[in-house]
């Protein structure tokens, strides 16, 4: 049973996941995250852009039946970044979580590949008091 994420895959996405490096289309003045190499509107090549990570919760759920590599329970949410794009991510303070709450980014462990495999890190989000 292959794991869902290999070492090269985690390495390839490090910049995007650690620092929220997404994309920007100069022609459409459009912010894009998760990153895409062509614009979702005009199809032209995009440039890199780092996002603030500040955003608002649009929806959330507490996962009580986890896939391989994750440990129940944890909370995931769809977050609308202040710049506009939306993404899926974990929230680290579930008790404070609700729709329309403001969040900020935090650097966290994402999952591990067994007890001796690579640990993948990335950005999670914290509800701002």
């Amino acid at each position: 049973m292959p794991h869902q994420s290999s070492v090269p895959m985690s390495w390839r996405l490090q910049k995007n996941r650690y620092n929220l490096v997404g994309s920007f289309c100069e022609s459409c003045n459009l912010d894009i995250f998760p990153p895409r190499k062509s614009c979702t509107k005009c199809g032209k090549d995009t440039k890199e852009k780092t996002f603030s990570g500040n955003g608002t919760i649009m929806s959330f759920t507490h996962i009580t039946s986890a896939p391989t590599g994750f440990t129940s329970n944890y909370t995931i949410a769809i977050i609308k970044l202040d710049e506009g794009p939306t993404l899926t991510a974990q929230i680290v303070n579930p008790d404070k979580t609700d729709i329309e709450k403001k969040v900020k980014p935090v650097f966290r462990k994402m999952f591990s590949d067994g007890s001796s495999g690579v640990i993948t890190y990335g950005t999670k989000f914290k509800v701002v008091e």
């Binding site: 998760p34 039946s65 986890a66 995931i76 769809i78 899926t88 990335g122």
Partner: peptide
């Protein structure tokens, strides 16, 4: 890369 690796599951996506 951007849903499953974040810990989303199918019940999770439909719960959202």
């Amino acid at each position: 890369e951007w849903e499953a690796n974040m810990g989303a599951t199918f019940p999770g996506l439909y719960a959202l």
